[in-house]
Design a protein around this nucleic acid. Structure first.
Lengths: 344, 344
DNA sequence: CTGAAAGCGCTTACAG
DNA sequence: CTGAAAGCGCTTACAG
């Protein structure tokens, strides 16, 4: 394995010059630079990143931590972040939290601190106060998506606002009997996403002078299966079936559409369905939804992180609260329409 | 930031003893060990992984390269591999190839070689001969899934055999008009997965004395959408519609089932559908399929890689061809049945 | 069992 | 512009 010494010898210069030439620094004569480059090419020299890190303190590596990898939001964010980082010459070390509290502690108290990463990117993960302090003390900035972080920078859509918008769309179409399929009360790992979205739904109803019956609020788990199951229960009700269903995510909405079809109901003639996300498959399902541009969210937040890393005065404000509200847009497709005259 | 010197000073021993005590080595008195541990705890000392790497040459880090992250097979494999590695104390650096040839070259010729990873895990990616040689020269073993690798160790299901089994299941039920929805001819990135699966389909038909009409072979792209579209074309044919469809992956099969329903056809009474994968949603769709246990495949192959890394004689056989055929199982659910009497 | 010291392979003030 | 040398923070033969 050719080292920097070998290159220096072959080029007839010192290792300092080799280092300067190869990293594109100033103060190297054109001649020396050319000789070094030729020698490096001839030897197939690749600088040791480890030595670089030890000497400079820079890793050019970002730690990414998320609770799941195999769910749409997370794998989409991950792909976007990875591509953005690679382009900027950064590596990505992946930590997923599916292994429980023990694994989580190990990641935060050990792996993230061993100076292998320059910064941390979180998706729907909230570091504890002490975890955050430790990272800040080591000068490692954090950027998150999927939920606000007290004491760090985040890009997050306003869940309540998104839910209100979806519900208002249904109300404006003339729906009065609107059901909601959310997640689990007070749960959703670290953030209260379910609660926020349910709040938006309830707020919109109240503003319109409508009531939210408890039998119209169902609890799924953000999968197609649960959307299907819950929608069947709602739609099969012989007395009080809704004319529209707002699902807290598109995947549950896909399930709801399939449930309606299986019951012989037409979407949107008999039942309107709307979701949140603008999932890759939403166009296929003709689903009206609230677009949160997940891919762009990943790119933008990764870029923000890179920007911080290049800020020479980063130390003065490693981690400060900075909520960037990510905009949402209503996308109307064919799963929502005015309710049939008789249905009201 | 407390360093090893600080710990040594506080414990009243040398840095050599600190190093030995903290890494659980032999030849440390119980007393010294206790003092070191107390000092390390008091100072909140975390050893620098970079210095460890530079001194030992070991990274405890695996490079994982895959063409996609946001597709089911890949995100599932990734989650399984990540969990297995973390448990063993290894980190995972993720490289995804969606950025084209330029990114690919950068990853193989630069990132993977800078001595940041001890080994490489590939999913449906075939390193070129020279890429493989370089990694071997640096003593970095490769383990892959999703396709055989000449000159490296792989865990792969026999695509042809899986396809044959799926087709035979349909034949055994009495189907004679069996369609196939595959991928793109000769494509599928680095491996000829489509071709292999189509071969299995054709072989099974021929063995049973059946012919494979060209109008019964359709080309999708492994998504639900394409399965839906292609199935509609097949099933809508007024003269020559099949009684069964074998899809090269479960996601296309989901699409096929939805297409059948939208056409007013019953599954399995009017049309049987089978896939390959045993996707997380296959049970929900009642889909008969060929299980390839993706999660277990990820775990097993990651373990094989860790095993190699701990082999003291690894250098003698860093990368040798070793095909481990991953077993497949037929899972019969409710999407396949005997064809209706009139349909034959 | 324990410590002094070399070494891992770079980068970067400091002199020249 | 260029080079000698210190330094990054560990590990590990080698002596004792």
């Amino acid at each position: 394995m050719a080292g920097i010494e070998d290159v220096a010898r072959l080029a007839g210069v010192s290792t300092a010059t080799v280092s300067r030439a190869l990293s594109g620094k100033e103060h190297v004569s054109a001649k020396a630079r050319a000789r070094v480059e030729a020698a490096a090419a001839e030897l197939g020299y690749v600088a040791s990143h480890t030595a670089y890190t030890l000497a400079t303190g820079r890793n050019r590596n970002i730690g990414v931590v998320m609770p799941y990898i195999d769910r749409w939001f997370f794998s989409t964010i991950l792909e976007a972040v990875e591509t953005t980082l690679i382009e900027a010459g950064y590596d990505l070390t992946l930590y997923n939290l599916s292994g429980g509290q023990g694994q989580r502690d190990k990641i935060f108290n050990d792996l993230l601190l061993r100076k292998r990463v320059d910064a941390v990117f979180t998706a729907a993960v909230a570091p504890s106060q002490s975890e955050l302090e430790q990272l800040t003390r080591m000068g490692k900035p954090i950027v998150g998506v999927g939920g606000k972080l007290e004491g760090a920078r985040t890009f997050v859509m306003d869940d309540t606002k998104a839910a209100r918008l979806a519900t208002e769309h249904l109300i404006a179409l003339g729906h009065r009997r609107i059901a909601f399929i959310g997640g689990t009360e007070g749960s959703d790992r670290e953030f209260r996403q379910h609660d926020l979205r349910k709040n938006g739904y309830v707020e919109a109803l109240h503003t319109a002078g409508l009531s939210s019956k408890t039998q119209w609020v169902a609890y799924g788990d953000y999968t197609i299966q649960s959307g299907y199951y819950e929608a069947k229960q709602l739609l099969g009700d012989p007395r009080d079936a809704p004319t529209a269903i707002f699902c807290a995510c598109d995947e549950m909405a896909f399930g709801a559409i399939m449930a309606a079809k299986d019951l012989g109901l037409r979407v949107p003639e008999d039942i309107s369905v709307i979701g949140i996300d603008n999932h890759d498959m939403s166009a296929f399902f003709e689903l009206s939804t609230i677009d949160q541009q997940v891919r762009q969210q990943g790119i933008a937040s990764a870029k923000r992180l890179l920007e911080l890393l290049e800020d020479p005065r980063l130390e003065e404000h490693v981690n400060v609260t900075e909520d960037l509200e990510w905009p949402v847009h209503l996308v109307v497709r064919s799963s929502t329409a005015r309710p049939a005259a008789g249905a009201r």
